[in-house]
Structures are given as C-alpha cells and as structure tokens.
Design a protein around this nucleic acid. Sequence first.
RNA 1: GCGCCCAUAGCUCAGUAGGAUAGAGCGGCGGAUUCCUAAUCCGCAGGCCACAGGUUCAAAUCCUGUUGGGCGCACCA
Length: 538
Amino acid sequence: MLKRIREMIKNAIINAYGAVELPGLELTIAPEGMGDVATQIAFRLAKILRKNPFEIANRIAQSIKSPYIEKAVAVKPGYINIFLDNLFFEEFIKKIEDEGLSYFQEPKKNIKIQVEFVSANPTGPLHVGNGRGGIIGDVLGNLLKLEGYDVSKEYYVNDAGSKMDLFTDSIVYYYGKLCGIDTKFPEEGYKGEYIKNIAEDIYFKFKDRYAKNGKIDKEAIRDLGKDFMIWQIQKSLARFGVFFDTWFYESTLYKNGDVARTIEAFKKSGYTYEKDGALWFRTTAFGDDKDRVLVRKTGEPTYTLVDAAYHKNKWERGFRKAIDIWGADHFGHIIPMKALIQGLGIPEDFLDVIIYQIVHLYENSKEVMMSKHTGTFITLDELVSEVGKDAARFFFLLKSADTHLNFDMTLAKKESVDNPVFYVQYTYARLLNILKKSGVPIAKKSFNANKLSEREERALLNELIFIKENLENISRTYSVNKLPFLAINLCKSANSFYQKHKVIGADNETERLHLVNATITALSMLMDLMGIEKKEKM
RNA sequence: GCGCCCAUAGCUCAGUAGGAUAGAGCGGCGGAUUCCUAAUCCGCAGGCCACAGGUUCAAAUCCUGUUGGGCGCACCA
C-alpha cells in the first residue's frame, strides 16, 4: 500500500522538476501530530538541484494530489509530512483482512538464493555460538522467502577434512580400549566426554565387530561416529526450531568429481602456478594480500580448493546468490573465496558473507574458552533446556551480527524470565482473546476509518502500514536483528491501545475489531518469521 | 605490523543509504485495575553517543587520527 504513496511522491517530483535521478525515496513514520508519513527527499534533491530544501519540499507538497492523501505539508528545514486520507486506511484494512497472512507475501521473483549456515564440523555437539549463526540463517531464509525469493537453506557437512581424522582417531582410542586394543590418543584429539560416549555406544551395539585381529576398522568407526554426530546435531537444531532443506556432504564433492573438475577449471583460468611442489592460485590478482595453495605438495586438495568447488557446485545448481553465514574466526576466508569464485568465472556478488561476532562465554564472571578439543563449552542443547526454545531464539535474534556477545549462562537464565519474547506472545494472546470474546465475524462488516481518531488507534494503524516497508528494508540489509524490534514496537502500540480503550461494547466496536484483527495478522506473520510459537493463552 | 568488527543511560543492547527533542528492556522512583489476560499501561530520574580534529545548512551515523576490547593474517577447517 505504501508503494502507492511512494509512486505519488515520485510523480509529484517529476511534475515539479522533470525527470530527476532519484537517490532513493525513504518513507518514515511522521512524528506524532505531524501527519502519518514523512520523507526527507527534499534534502537529497536540494543537493542535486542546488536549491533550498524547504522551497523544494513546498513545491513537491503542492503538486502531490491523490485521493489517498488528505494533505501534504512542507515543514521547516525541508521535510514533507503527509496526512493520509481515511480512504487509504480503509483500503489497507480491507486488503490485509481479505488476504490474511499472504498480504505480506511478495510475488515470486524467480531468483534462487541459497542460505548456508551453521555448517559446524560433525566432530562434536553444537555450542551456543552455533545457535547464533543458526538463528540468523533460519530467520533470514524465512524473510527472503517472504520477499519472493526461491530460498534453500543448506547445511554443509565437513566430513572429509583432517578434523574428521582427529575425531575418528579420538573415538578409535576409546573403542580400542573397550576391545582390548591399545592405540595412541591423537595429540590434538577431542577430549570431550561425548567422544567416550560414542565409543561406548558403538561397542554396545556392535561389540568388537570393527576390531578384528588386533586391527581397528577406522573407516567404519569414522562413518558410525559421523552418523551419530549428525543425528545429534539434527536433534539439537530441531529443538532449537532450525530446519534445513538440504544437507550437503563435503565428501560428495570428491565422489562426483567436482574437486577434480574445479582444479581443471582453475588451471584453465590462467591464474594458477606451481611453486614448492604445490599448485597455487593467484588470489592477489583479485585483491588478496597473498596467493593461496589449491593442491598441497602431498597432492591433497586444501580446504580452500574444496570450498571453491562447493561454491562452483552451488552456482551450477542454479543459485544466483549464495549467502554464507560464518563466525568471525572465518573472516579471513572471505577475500580468498571471492577471488576464487571469480577465477571460476562466477560474478563476485554471487557470494554474500554475513559474519557474526564470536560469542564469549562467561561463568561466574570468568571467561570460559569454548573448545571442542578441551570439551569446555556450553552446548546449544543446554541453552534450550535452560531457557526454552522461544527465549533462546529471541535472545540471539535481538543482537546484531556484528556486536560482540558476552554470554553468561546464569544471566541468560535470569533474563529468560523477562525476555521480551513473552511480551510479544502475551500481546498476541490477549488480542486474540478479544476476537474470541466478541464472537462477531467481522469480515463482512464495513470499516469506517473516520471512527478511529484516538491517539492510540492512529499510532497502531501507522505502525501497521509500515510493516511491509520495514520488512523490505530488513531483507535488503540482511539485518534480521531488527525483526524482534519491529514486533516489540507493534506490541507496544497494541498494548497502549488495549490498556486505554475497550473494544467490546465501544461505540466504534466494529472499527476496533478490524484494527485488532489486522494487528493479529501482522503479529502472526512476524512470529512465524522468527519461528516463535504463537500461544492462544499465556 | 597489516586488515576487519566493536565502544551509545547503572546493566543488556537498538538506532549508519547524514535529518525533526538520541530510544527500548532490565534496575530505581511515583502512579493506574468494579471493565476484553496487570506477563499490562502512564509518568519521572538517568547521556560530553570512547577521545580529538575535519566535511556539511545538519554528524551517534561520513572522513582522518588516538585509546581500549575482540577476530583474522596456514600447504587447519
């Protein structure tokens, strides 16, 4: 709906000044008492046209004419404040009630986007940091779907690297012990209790089947350990409310020949050379500060090469945008990766990387190092058990990806009591209760926006008409942390309204029911988007 | 050393395509309930937006520098 207003302002500008190059037209909620919609476009135009912004605002305001707009006024330095006509609100309410949740669904854009996240090595349970990446990816995927993209959420399973060997050898050590075979515990092996548990689990199920003639079948142990871990990870993610469309195994890139093909493609690109027995790629030609090795002198491909093959695979699957969500410790990988995909003839902007800052763990005000190797970390499972799925999701979602997050388990437990997620759920439940109590099917009743003149009614209406605008903005900047604030603000307006004005039995009961109904639809959409449970009772 | 991220109320944090009086939650103080859920609402107190310069009609936001914290700079993943 606001799109129409934007079009009208654009037309007004063209009427007044001809075809000017518009630097982007941002609409905001006008300050209280100064209208409904505001724009500062006159300031932008002032620079281009070299004229006084107030003069420009005035001229635009005068040429804005539309049945949806009651009046447009230019204010002091150069704002244009627009008072919407009741017709606008009436059509808005009708549209959102007719279409329901699909009011927020943008038409299909036919662009395939892949969001890849979590992708933790299957060598240990997920920790709280994985939860942070998980929620960002999950919610961003949902949002992009809503914006009309063909979205696929993927988990990349690193099941072929050296970490996997360490993991295997760590299990083998304990499994061997159970079967009476002594092996050396790897120097950098995984020390967590779960390793022992996996070994015991394997022994319990298969006894010494994989330890014949004093030799342990490492391949079998590797596969069993991997499957066990992935199963664990999937379980943890499900409890956290995160689901993936696809699980992509690194090992398939070897099996299907992608790795070999990628090496050939790199060689053809003209950016490779041999040095010290290794194959290098000239990433410095694309802004990197040093070249990268693709194939080690041992003949083994590097992680970097395999990851390039993986992204080539994404491109060949038809994705035109790959959004990777990485922890800050992978930051250094961005520039080489972008260089590599360009070397493969893939446009640089195919890959967008969202970096989220590391989660620092505290216990009794002392920092705890998170490490799978030492086994000292708090798992995602523990977090979900302690504070609940919804509170855990909200906890991470509220914070923007690039702020450092200090995580204190005891604090998290305490904060879970007054977590804003309950505020949102409570608001939803009490609004829903009004509709239940009234028992009137409101759909058929006409809506007269004239009858909503109270301050709280108008504020809530204004909040509602801007939601689509805000969603679009959030999806463009990938800033999903703004979603909970959007929900909280909507709830604030809704609660102010609720507290002050009774709906049932009021003179304008019909109009208020429509307002409540539209608010529920919007809130419902936001909660779905964030993966927060909608409770009918609190 | 180089690159990137961060520094906003007592605490946890929002707020960057420069814009109207810098916001919220928690905590503190004071109010509101014969009525649809008080897990609510209303009000008050609390800010040299790390520091110093610069650009601009306008800077928390952009630029330069400084300080403090984090992350990265592998033939690991």
